[in-house]
Amino acid sequence: MTKVTMTINGKSVAGDVEGNTLLASFLRDDLHLTGTHIGCDTSQCGACVVHVDGRAVKSCTMFATEANGAEVATIEGQAAADGTLNVIQQAFQDHHGLQCGFCTPGMVMSTAALLKDNPKPTVTEVRTYLEGNICRCTGYHNIVKAIMAASGQDVSAIAAE
């Protein structure tokens, strides 16, 4: 076992992990932050996307030890402390950007990373950026619409498609 410490959603945490403990498993099993989902466990689906030192990564494809000392942001840190959804989460709700909701934590975290670098993406840029996030319900149309709305852009044309 190795001792790791990291800052998760602004809070310092510590734990003992095995060499082969994935960051996703540390978050879910040890810290009970089960908002980060493991969909495929083969680096394909993106449901486990979190931010490590400000960058979107697949937490099922990184070891917890490698995040030692890092700043980690997960879906649990997206809403305000009183439960008020952030602008991305609210847009997903308003535009029905989720059906079963399983992929949504990864979608929201990828969107947050996209909008940080590119505050007003085009529809094509959104679809390209989300190449690594799979929605098994195939609800992509409304996901893209929600992201366009979250970035403050007019979505009436998308609604008419």
């Binding site: 680096s43 993106g46 960058r55 979107a56 990564v57 697949k58 494809t61 950026y129 690594g132």
Partner: peptide, 9 residues
């Protein structure tokens, strides 16, 4: 290469 999260690692 891959997708954005892959490119970050």
């Amino acid at each position: 290469i891959g997708d954005p999260a892959v490119r970050n690692r």
